[in-house]
């Protein structure tokens, strides 16, 4: 049964991707890519990757759609040119050739799900055994993410931080030229979009009431995902995205300005840096206690308790940074005037 379901989802994904490339309307393409992400999340779940499915659903289908729509209101929604036929033929030729090559290569890949392949025999059994003995938290993914590969995750957090800083810098510039080669229709779209972003959905009673009802639950679920990450699917990355989604929902309902009054930009900037600093500070504290950088075992008398403390704190750091960065990016797009 799972096989049929998997094939069904994969086929739908290919169809959705084709539709995304085909459509000339960027709004439609963005909504379709949200659907694509949701299908991808379902597929990840079928492939036993519950943590990844949660991340993809929260980020791919939720946050990324909002960010793309925010960018679209600033850039316009129509794709103006079809690619020329020569261009298309050349591109199709290249693409077809590479597809055939990759498909040819797949025949040499180890069989799907075979437990004897090198991938499954190398470090994975060691991770699973050591997690049970030395770290003692049920979720192996969190253990690998936060403890075994703590350096790696620290690096990723700094990449996320850097991207957030980059956005803030990019949007701190004011445009030099003010050219307006716009058609009338485009400016109409712009004005309605501005009304929506400025005031939120304040005039729409039903979404507002239901949204208000839901926001506390979304925040609660975010915190659950954050602190239950040791025991079930979840962790800082997913929780950050979910909490950011709750605040974004608030901004959509009540308007950009009110959301910024709830969490001002300086708090967000502080969160961006603070989470990353918290993460690194754990590493430094470990060094002060005669351990290696990010060796959590020295944090408490009992090494296992030390690991638990370290993982909880660095996951909190990850969550804070991700929330701060995603919200800063959202505000940067939503608060930008259209020039």
């Amino acid at each position: 049964m799972t096989i049929i379901f998997g094939v069904f989802l994969l086929t739908l994904m290919v169809i959705t991707a084709l539709a995304i490339v085909h459509t000339q309307h960027l709004f439609v393409a963005v909504i379709l890519s949200g659907i694509f992400s949701l299908l991808m999340a379902a597929n990840f779940f079928l492939l036993d990757a519950a943590d990844v499915a949660l991340t993809e659903a929260a980020i791919g289908a939720g946050i990324s759609t909002v960010l793309f729509l925010g960018a679209l209101t600033l850039t316009g929604e129509a794709e103006r040119y079809r690619s020329s036929s020569v261009n298309r033929v050349v591109a199709l030729g290249v693409v077809a050739a590479i597809t055939l090559m990759v498909i040819y290569a797949t025949f040499d890949k180890p069989a799907f799900g075979d437990p004897q392949t090198p991938v499954q025999q190398h470090v994975a059994p060691w991770y699973i055994d050591t997690t049970a003995n030395d770290i003692d938290i049920p979720n192996v993914v969190t253990a690998v993410l936060a403890s075994f590969r703590g350096y790696d995750t620290l690096g990723e957090v700094f990449v996320v931080l850097t991207a957030g800083i980059g956005i803030l810098f990019l949007f701190s510039a004011t445009p030099t030229r003010r050219k307006k080669p716009q058609t009338e229709q485009e400016s109409e779209v712009e004005s309605t979009a501005e009304i929506k972003f400025g005031e939120g959905l304040r005039h729409f009673l039903i979404p507002q009431v239901v949204g208000r009802l839901l926001i506390p639950f979304i925040l609660l679920f975010g915190l659950y995902v954050q602190f239950h990450g040791d025991y079930g699917p979840g962790g800082g990355f997913q929780a950050g995205a979910i909490i950011a989604a709750a605040i974004i929902l608030y901004a959509l309902l009540e308007g950009e300005a009110r959301a910024l009054r709830v969490i001002p930009q300086w708090v967000l900037t502080g969160m961006m840096a603070g989470g990353a600093i918290l993460y690194s500070a754990v590493g430094v504290v470990c060094m002060m206690l005669d351990g290696n950088f990010l060796e959590y075992s020295v944090l408490a008398a009992d090494p296992i308790t030390g690991q638990h403390i370290g993982i909880i704190v660095i996951e909190a750091g990850v969550g804070i940074t991700v929330t701060g960065v995603l919200l800063s990016i959202f505000h940067a797009f939503a608060g930008r005037r259209r020039f």
Binding site: L47, D48, A49, A50, D51, F112, G113, D114, P115, V119, Q120, A124, I128, T131, A132, P138, N139, V140, V141, Y231, G232, P233
Partner: peptide, 11 residues
């Protein structure tokens, strides 16, 4: 990373 008959890596 999928192993046939496996479950999500949560002990």
């Amino acid at each position: 990373g999928k192993v046939a008959g496996g479950t999500a890596p949560i002990i």
